[in-house]
């Protein structure tokens, strides 16, 4: 494996490996702020009774295609010949492919040979038995031998909970700006989801997720579930697992709030004063979710010190979500009046 470039531009602090890659691919064709419009609240439970917290239930491909005319396609594979044929077909057609990999097998990741972790990178080309790789998150651009890379993708079925290897392709050439009506629709959808409970009891329908996940709370009641879970974390034998899930999931909450503020600012539907206030609140909320995510991570190391601050901060986040609903409703009424 060789590395031809490192130290690219700094990452957007609220992008993860997947959203960052998608933005890189879409950026030449469209303003990326218009891709991410989901800002909701859900709690899911798996069969082992572990709870997960997410700001959306739409898959990545559905979210970015919904108002933009962008075509995002998901594919999954069980065998190396199928995977190889798919990668080569798209590369021959000049398309990059976003691929799910295990970082355990990636020499440029800090978790190489130490930890299994799901991660997204893109394959951008092929030359003499090697794929050209671009990893936005780890700032890596280089190549990897073909068979070695196939293995990186297929081991997610043996080393992690995935049933198959997963890929996305994105065609952003047909991008069109969301209309003002679509923009209003996106805001209305978020408001409805934040204040309703119609999704509770439903399973999660995402091609990447294979385990059975049922929605157990929606909107502000997500905090009741989180507070209950937090109360039990000290006594739980799985406290490290629970804190790790909360850390990852609240980071996702942070991203959704910040990226939604960028979405709101990218369209002029009037009521600029209300939008400015809402956007500033979303950015503050994003930061507070990120601090919370970090505190969960820190509590895995210094348990007592950070754990005691988790509960009051969670209660404060709930209050901030109440304010978000009020400001979003006010803005929605102003632009639809």
């Amino acid at each position: 494996m060789t590395q031809s470039q490192a130290q690219a531009q700094d990452l957007h602090p609220y992008h993860d490996c997947l959203t960052g890659l998608v933005n890189q691919i879409v950026a030449p064709h469209a303003p990326t702020e218009l891709l991410w419009s989901e800002c909701k609240l859900y709690a899911f439970k798996n069969p082992k009774d572990l709870v997960f917290y997410q700001p959306k239930i739409l898959s990545m491909s559905d979210e970015i295609s919904r108002f933009s005319g962008i075509k995002a396609s998901h594919s999954e594979f069980s065998t190396e010949p199928e995977l190889k044929a798919y990668l080569h077909a798209h590369l021959d057609a000049g398309r990059s492919i976003i691929c799910l990999v295990d970082t355990f097998n990636l020499p440029f990741c800090r978790t190489f040979q130490t930890q299994h972790a799901a991660h997204w990178l893109s394959v951008t080309g092929y030359r003499e038995g090697h794929y050209q790789l671009f990893d936005h998150y780890y700032q890596f651009q280089g190549e990897m031998e073909e068979g070695q890379f196939h293995e990186c993708m297929l081991v997610v079925t043996t080393n992690m909970e995935f049933e198959k290897a997963h890929c996305y392709t994105i065609d952003a050439q047909g991008f069109s700006r969301p209309s003002v009506d679509q923009y209003k629709q996106a805001i209305a959808d978020n408001l409805t989801a934040l204040t309703g409970d119609s999704a509770v009891g439903q399973p999660i329908d995402d091609p990447i997720i294979t385990e059975e996940l049922i929605i157990v709370a929606q909107g502000l009641s997500v905090f009741d579930v989180a507070l209950e879970k937090l109360a039990a974390v000290e006594e739980s034998a799985e406290h490290q697992v629970i804190l790790n899930i909360m850390s990852n999931n609240f980071k996702g909450m942070a991203s959704s709030r910040f990226l939604f503020s960028e979405f709101l600012e990218a369209v002029d539907a009037g009521a600029l004063e209300q939008r400015t206030e809402l956007s500033a609140h979303l950015k503050q909320l994003a930061q507070d979710y990120l601090i919370y995510s970090n505190l969960c991570l820190k509590a895995m190391f210094d348990r007592v010190k950070s754990l005691k601050s988790l509960r009051p901060r969670l209660e404060r986040l709930k209050e901030q979500e109440v304010t978000l609903i009020l400001l979003l409703d006010e803005y929605h009424r102003a632009i639809t009046a």
């Binding site: 602090p13 930061q287 990120l290 601090i291 995510s293 970090n294 991570l297």
Partner: peptide, 16 residues
Amino acid sequence: YHQIDLLGACFNGSYF
């Protein structure tokens, strides 16, 4: 005082 200058940094995020 007229001026307050600080040296510092964050981790796992950039914060105000």
